[in-house]
Simulated assay, not measured.
Amino acid sequence: MKISTKGRYGLTIMIELAKNNGNGPMSLKTIAKENDLSEHYLEQLVAPLRNASLVKSIRGAYGGYVLAKEPHEITAGDIIRILEGPITPVEGIEDEEPAKQELWIRIRDAVKDVLDTTTLEDLSTYGEKGTQDPYMFYI
């Protein structure tokens, strides 16, 4: 399974909002500048996240975006599914022989497990004193 820039940059938006959680709205311009990304592209990515009720937009001079839920309530899997679609390593596994079907299912389940047990809180605090898990990003 290959995660495109949609998924990667969507995670970036959400991690930045999680780091800023409780400090008011954060603009996409700020996120884009801090991460050397296109603000226009981030605008396209935040719409489905807003439609899925993961973020809220705040209008006004000091507006921007905030998380719609607490960081521990949103998983990487939630974000990836919204931006990338279903998590599947290969299409059409029902046409494969049983041994290959089992392999693809096990790979899918392992990836889903990692994504669904990794929260924005985990990602936003990674690397802070006392939170670094050296095995967190290895499969």
Results as ranks from 00 to 15, higher is better:
I82H: 04
K33I: 14
D133P: 14
L115Q: 05
Y41H: 11
T88I: 13
E16R: 06
A52D: 04
P25Y: 08
A47R: 15
H72M: 02
V90P: 07
P134W: 05
N35G: 09
I105S: 13
I105H: 13
V66W: 03
V114A: 11
L42A: 03
E39S: 09
K2A: 06
L49N: 02
E84F: 12
P89H: 04
G7D: 09
A61M: 14
Q101I: 08
G10C: 10
E34N: 14
E94L: 11
D109H: 07
E96F: 12
I15G: 01
Y62M: 12
P71G: 03
G10R: 04
K56A: 01
T118E: 03
A52C: 09
A110D: 13
I80Y: 01
M1T: 09
I80W: 01
V55E: 01
E84H: 12
R106S: 13
A76P: 05
Y41A: 04
E96N: 14
R8E: 11
G7M: 04
H72V: 05
R106N: 15
I82E: 06
K56G: 01
L83E: 06
H72Q: 02
D109L: 11
Y138S: 14
N23W: 02
P71Q: 04
V111G: 07
W104V: 12
L120W: 01
E96R: 11
I87F: 00
E43V: 14
I15M: 02
N20W: 01
E43S: 09
A61L: 15
A18P: 06
P98C: 10
K29Q: 10
T131W: 04
I139R: 15
A47P: 13
G60W: 14
F137P: 12
L54Q: 00
A68G: 12
M14E: 07
Y9V: 12
V46A: 08
M1S: 05
V66C: 01
P25A: 09
E102F: 12
L54R: 00
S4C: 07
D78C: 03
R81M: 10
I107Q: 11
M136H: 08
S38I: 15
E16Q: 08
G24D: 00
N23I: 00
T5R: 14
A52N: 06
L45D: 05
L123H: 01
G60M: 13
R50W: 04
S57W: 09
E96K: 10
K6I: 13
M26G: 12
L11Q: 11
H72C: 03
T30V: 10
G64N: 05
I31V: 11
I3C: 06
